[in-house]
Simulated assay, not measured.
Amino acid sequence: MNAADMNDDDRPLNLDVPDHLEYSEEHVWVDASVSPAIVGITEYAANKLGELVFVDLPEPGGRVEAGDEIVELESSKAVEPLICPVSGTIRYVNRDAADDPSVITNDPYNEGWIVKIELDDDEPELLSADEYLRIIR
């Protein structure tokens, strides 16, 4: 998802945007404080998509570059790719989310994580929580 596709009238107000995470403009969060880093979609993206009905996960062990479409998220409203904001090797995928995609919608920052990636050494260009909030509000 990208910010250009969304207008001010659709933006929910009281969103959770945890300070300890970093964000992309495509509404993806990264927790690089752990290894492998955890990646998921933001509450904003989850609200925009609505109830997810299918998640097409990549296979662990695959290599991903920042900007790659790595996951397809399907809801009753739309089919959207998850655009990975980091480069590295996918180590784990959330099979529970694949079995029950609503976990992503209902708990995007915890049980709804999508992939865990062993990051390359380069520093990804991500936004702080405050910078991300400025984009979505």
Rank of each mutant, 00 (worst) to 15 (best):
M1V: 12
M1N: 06
N2S: 12
A4G: 02
D5C: 11
D5Y: 13
M6N: 14
P12G: 02
L13W: 07
N14T: 12
L15S: 02
L15W: 12
D16I: 13
V17D: 00
V17R: 09
D19A: 14
D19Q: 15
E22Q: 14
E22K: 14
Y23R: 04
S24L: 07
E26R: 14
D31V: 07
A32M: 07
A32L: 05
S33D: 08
V34E: 07
S35M: 03
A37T: 02
I38T: 15
V39Q: 02
V39G: 00
G40R: 04
T42R: 08
E43P: 04
Y44M: 12
A45S: 09
A45F: 10
A46Q: 00
A46C: 01
N47V: 13
N47Q: 13
N47S: 11
K48G: 03
V53S: 04
V53D: 01
D56E: 13
D56Y: 10
E59H: 13
G61W: 03
G61D: 00
G62D: 12
G62S: 13
G62N: 14
R63K: 12
E65M: 08
E65V: 06
E65Q: 10
I70S: 01
S76L: 15
S76V: 15
S76A: 13
S76P: 00
E80H: 10
P81I: 07
P81L: 06
P81K: 10
I83L: 09
C84T: 13
C84M: 11
V86H: 09
G88K: 01
T89I: 11
T89Q: 09
R91C: 12
V93T: 14
V93K: 03
D96Q: 12
D96Y: 11
A97M: 10
A97W: 13
A97G: 02
A98W: 06
D99V: 06
D100N: 14
V103Y: 05
V103Q: 05
T105R: 07
N106W: 06
D107Y: 08
D107E: 10
G112C: 04
G112Y: 11
G112Q: 03
I114C: 02
D120K: 06
D120Q: 11
D120T: 13
D122G: 00
E123V: 14
E125A: 15
L126S: 05
L126I: 12
Y132I: 08
R134S: 12
I135A: 01
